[in-house]
Design a protein around this nucleic acid. Structure first.
Lengths: 141, 141
DNA sequence: CTGGATCCATTCAGATACTG
DNA sequence: CAGTATCTGAATGGATCCAG
């Protein structure tokens, strides 16, 4: 039985609506946000230092990078390696699980790039005032 | 040349840092949030009505469902089909592009389920007070 | 049933300042 | 350089009420 994650009110869904489902939702929420995904994507380059990451993920703030990295480390997605040098140096890389996730994230980025034109066109259509012009509502039922 | 989406300050990245990069980031942000992903995942079931979607995506509010669906429709990911019946009936389904995205989302959900134990273990380790006990800081460089 | 609008609490996210 | 804490404004998200 494949747990659904969406957690609908079906029979099986109710059965796994316990702490497992809650944890799943929690983890899902941790990674389903743009900063987490962009960081994971950026770590495709291998091991990166804090500053390097900051340069690669355009627009991210010091705080968000730090915060998101901590979340990802906690979830076992990125590995943090501090060196006792001065000035301090900390390197971040993906764990094996993180690398698996990275392939998915990559698919995500690929989709976005590949369908940019499609999206742009869809938006033009949607934003056009006569959006419902040729709709001619299907008289269902 | 593969656009990076993360938009770092590399040479090529700067070259595409125009409206294209901006749009990419915008679209990415639209779909990189839990409600959008959960809705897309829920639409794996095929065509669903508003109420059915609401039942399938556990915990989503009326407002968020409505709002997110509009965003996804605008981006050409879901298709909205209203019927001129009374009471009104509206059906939602994935567009071809949406179905392609769905496979990626599915990988996402799969990763979450498959690595739940790994994450739980990582969290236990991370949340343990003696987190840095056996660290014995690598004396790099 | 679908969907929009409003009000309100919570959270997110950026800027800044400060420690090691 | 890396990281944390605080303060503030913006955005998210939920509850409720109203319209088609």
């Amino acid at each position: 039985m494949e747990a659904s994650l969406t957690g609908g009110r079906t029979a099986e869904a109710k059965a796994e609506a316990g702490p497992v489902g809650a944890l799943a939702r929690e983890v899902f929420t941790d990674i389903a946000n743009k900063w987490a995904l962009l960081i994971i994507e950026a770590l495709e380059a291998g091991t990166l230092r804090f500053g390097q990451l900051r340069a690669r993920v355009d627009g991210i703030s010091h705080k968000m990078l730090s915060q998101t990295l901590r979340t990802l480390e906690r979830d076992g997605i990125v590995e943090r390696t501090p060196y006792a040098t001065v000035p301090p140096r900390v390197e971040y890389s993906l764990t094996p699980a993180g690398r698996e996730l990275q392939t998915v994230v990559h698919g995500f980025c690929h989709w976005t790039r590949y369908h940019l034109d499609h999206v742009a066109a869809a938006r033009r259509r949607f934003d056009t005032p006569d959006h419902a012009a040729d709709a001619t509502l299907s008289n269902g039922a």
